[in-house]
Design a protein around this nucleic acid. Structure first.
Lengths: 189, 189
DNA sequence: CGCGCGATTGAGTAATTTCAAATCTAGTGG
DNA sequence: CCACTAGATTTGAAATTACTCAATCGCGCG
């Protein structure tokens, strides 16, 4: 599990063993069972989470009790309520496990510490954020520009593994349509 | 105009005069008239742009010729086709001036150079990206969770200046509804 | 075998879009 | 200063699309 995380960083910047050990010392491991919560609405959020194994979803519950999925996370992805983490406000999102999960947690404090101590780690996170920023812009564009059907096909093409692991009603929520609508769209081929 | 940019950076990290001058030496100024293009679909994009003065929009033109606005930029904001800039692919967005504009342009090359030479500049950009990332997540959540009317009211509350400066049909495009729908929504009070 | 969850289907309703036309507004030139 | 025009906004009506609610279907697991 250290290997996965090390590769993840070294895809952007190489590390010596000493450096990696130092970084790794700032992380904690965490295991959660399917259906357990990682973050609940109202929580104080102090950690970001890297997924070693498993699958999670982060979602907002509206006033009618309906869930709107902001993101999924699988192996190699980070997940948290970033608004709550960065602004130090209570969580508005809920994050729970779709499967049993193994995570590495990194506190905001430790991330800032590592970033200020090691330029290359700050570089790593800047690169990750740059890619994430572009990804979110693309998602917004696809919400503005594409039909739900098109977004469904695009998601299927770009992340087929997701469809093997999460129920379609969650995909629907992520795409911004009801499960009934998605079911009808998926039938149209 | 140097002052605005310096304040912009120093809101995150303090600089010596020498440092600022060095950074500033990596920027170029650029002036564009209303309706001029900063980026056109298909362009090779090598610069990011900081707005000193004026107002711009970045949008995707769909196959029916309809424009979908990804972002606006006014004083103090950065704007580019980030997908094209980062991935070094042809621009899919068009960016043009809603008003006469004065910009500072920073090439990707110079940004990477400054980030690698000056840890504090890499820190600055990471902070900007972190905030931007959270902002985009919030926008996605509001597209999933809120009605167009609610998004209209939220945008009006958070950025009233925008409504003074850009036509409502562009606001509609940004919110993801037609101008007719926005007009009808805005009437409902 | 039956329960429970997920997926599908149907019917009626609500919301948004499209297309067309009318109205309003700000800037321009005479 | 006024008439004109282009762009922006509003309004109407029909068509489309997605939603809600309800019922049914299918399948894996105890």
């Amino acid at each position: 599990m250290q290997a996965l995380f090390r590769e993840h960083i070294e895809r952007i910047t190489p590390l010596t063993d000493t450096e990696f050990d130092y970084i790794y010392g700032h992380l904690k491991t965490k295991k959660l069972k399917k259906h357990q919560f990682l973050v609940q609405e109202g929580d104080r959020v102090i950690n970001d989470h890297f997924v070693i194994k498993g699958c999670l979803k982060a979602y907002l519950t509206d006033n009618k009790g309906k869930e709107h999925i902001l993101q999924f996370a699988m192996e190699d992805w980070w997940i948290s309520d970033y608004q709550a983490l960065i602004k130090e406000t209570p969580a508005t999102l809920t994050i729970d496990c779709i499967e049993d999960c193994e995570l590495l947690t990194l506190s905001l404090h430790n991330r800032e510490k590592l970033c200020s101590e090691m330029h290359k780690i700050e570089h790593f996170f800047r690169q990750k954020l740059t890619n994430g920023y572009v990804g979110l812009q693309q998602r917004i564009l696809s919400m503005l520009n594409n039909t739900a059907k098109e977004r469904y096909d695009m998601l299927l093409a770009s992340n087929p593994a997701l469809f093997q692991r999460v129920p379609k009603q969650l995909i629907a929520s992520y795409l911004g349509v009801t499960r009934e609508t998605l079911s009808r769209l998926a039938a149209t081929r």
